[in-house]
Nucleic acid binder design. Sequence first.
RNA 1: GCCACCUUAGCUCAGUUGGCCAGAGCAGGGGUUUUGUAAACCUCAGGUCGUCAGUUCGAAUCUGACAGGUGGCUCCA
Length: 637
Amino acid sequence: MYKITIENKVIEAVENLSVDEIVKNNFSDIRPVAAKIDGVLVDLSEIVKKDVSIELIKPDEEEGLEIIRHTCAHVFGHAIKQIYPNTKMVIGPTIDNGFYYDIYNEDSISEKDLSSIEALMKKLAKKNYKIIREVVTKEKAQSVFRERKEDYKLKLIADIPSDEVIAIYHHEEYIDMCRGPHLISTKELNYFKLMKISGSYWKGDSKNEQLQRIYGTAWDTKDNLKAYLHKLEEAEKRDHRKIGQKLDYFHFQEESPGMVFWHDNGWKLFNIVKDFITSYLRNYDYKIINTPQILDKSLWKKSGHLDKFSDLIFDVSSENKEYAVKPMSCPGHIQVFNQGLKSYRDLPIKFAEFGLVHRNEPSGTLHGLMRIRAFTQDDAHIFCTPDQIENEIKLLIKTIYEIYRQFGFEEIKVELSTRPEKRVGGEEIWDKSEDALMKALDASDVKWQLNEGDGAFYGPKIDFSLKDSLERVWQLGTIQLDFSMPARLDATYVDHNGDKVAPVMIHRAILGSLERFVGILIEEYAGDLPLWLSPLHAVIINISENQEAHCLELAKQINNLGIRASSDLRNEKISYKIRHHSMMRVPYLLVIGDKEVESNQISVRTRTGEDLGVMDVDKFIKMVETLVGNKSIVLKN
RNA sequence: GCCACCUUAGCUCAGUUGGCCAGAGCAGGGGUUUUGUAAACCUCAGGUCGUCAGUUCGAAUCUGACAGGUGGCUCCA
């Protein structure tokens, strides 16, 4: 007889029972998807053979959902093998909100095929097939998958260490290799949808053969599935490309793929962001410089960029000279540093540039403002001594957080990337600088992750990333140490011994690319930018042509006082104009009729439809000044 | 660059198995209206159906190439 602790109860079991049977015998209202026996995750079919403590995994828990999704991937495998028997299954892991399965198929699957595959999956799930786990030897596993011609599973088995347990799961004729656990039957699977299809590569290496990846989502209840699909629809409405077009901010066209045509209001936003960063640069002793757009290829050869990144560099030739359009500003900054003799007393020297760079990125990677071929970095290079690294980094981390906070971003992903296998510089400088970065991160009290071996060949780095509306992560800020380029391009300073030595260079960008940052801003606020960022603060709307002259005069007056305002005097009904400018997300609509002209006041309405009432112009200006000054996200104080 | 898909008027979209002059709403022009807080009414104009080639008596519709885009993959100094 065993003593089993489960769901805060102690149960005595007389014979070897499965977890599933124990639950069914004792709890009529609980339907778990798996269990933990003494902390170890198992299937419900696991037989209890001793005194244990059982924790049940419910479908609505994160671990429970993962099990549902994992099983769903197997049912997908079952369906696809029935429709396309020659399909070779590769790997089918769970991901956020669902799963994917990589497959290899002679005839590729198209998105049109998904609905029939999904229909078959639903049919198979309803059959209530028992899902059975079997622990097998490596040899047995190999023979099973050899018989099924699952070449990729065989390759995976070959990589499994001999001391590791191999489990295979089968339901009806489908067999897959998996750590598990899984649902006990396919019947529990009801709320899933195949979403999309994409290419992928075996082992994630583009040199390997191309596979197809089918994405699916799976949930514990109908409502959760529906809610997820609804959330995707809502996220699409925040897409900066859609909003950018609707608000007349920018456009793209095929004559210049990956490069932005900024319109008046979008360019205003761009410059508001730029001016904000400029004021920070002035406060922190940066020298703001500007360097040429094209430079002779010999310089890029010397810096090493031409050999390493020639695919991404746009070429220009003129007369007998070969030039490269700059893909980055660092070599230019070193040329400025090299003018005149520098002493250690001069360091750190900080050069900043809103550097417009061109990179011929592969066509498939372009994405709205987020990834483009011509973009503006808020770039800077700090030339310093090794001893100054830690302080400079601390200061940078602090200011990056401070600046992001002012834009309203709190959730920032921070990663430290350390020395890669191929690198320049001695171990000592890597030790010292990785240590400096870590210390600076810890001292700054931020959560960060280690990305071992992912640093640049010339030094370790810290990256700062934010998410877009569809939770895609985009890198913005970066702090990179560089032990290589200053020496390659002959940068030196005189140290206190009188020797000429190469400085350490810190590459840093706070927003990264201004274009990308504007894209992130639009998505974060779904177009409802805080007042201080709004290209237009207010539109003045007249009720009839009687007030035309007054409106024009008013627009002039408040523009002079720093309010970004325009007027709409079209011969349209007031409600028409209200609707139009509300949809254009103009923060304030100032309505002027005969009453307002007479009292010299304005009727103020916000873009969200809130009536702030009739007020004096002075009062309105003071309100806007206050809200702009404290970077408020609301439109009244 | 790779895989799948998409491309019709300024925008959002219809266009049935290839078949009379390719449609709608919004936006735009012209009128009427002088309007009080999210769409006034009438009217007019707008498209070589992404480009180029092919199949066919006939192509927006079928085929191919190319371009651009979308979702991923790879990449992201």
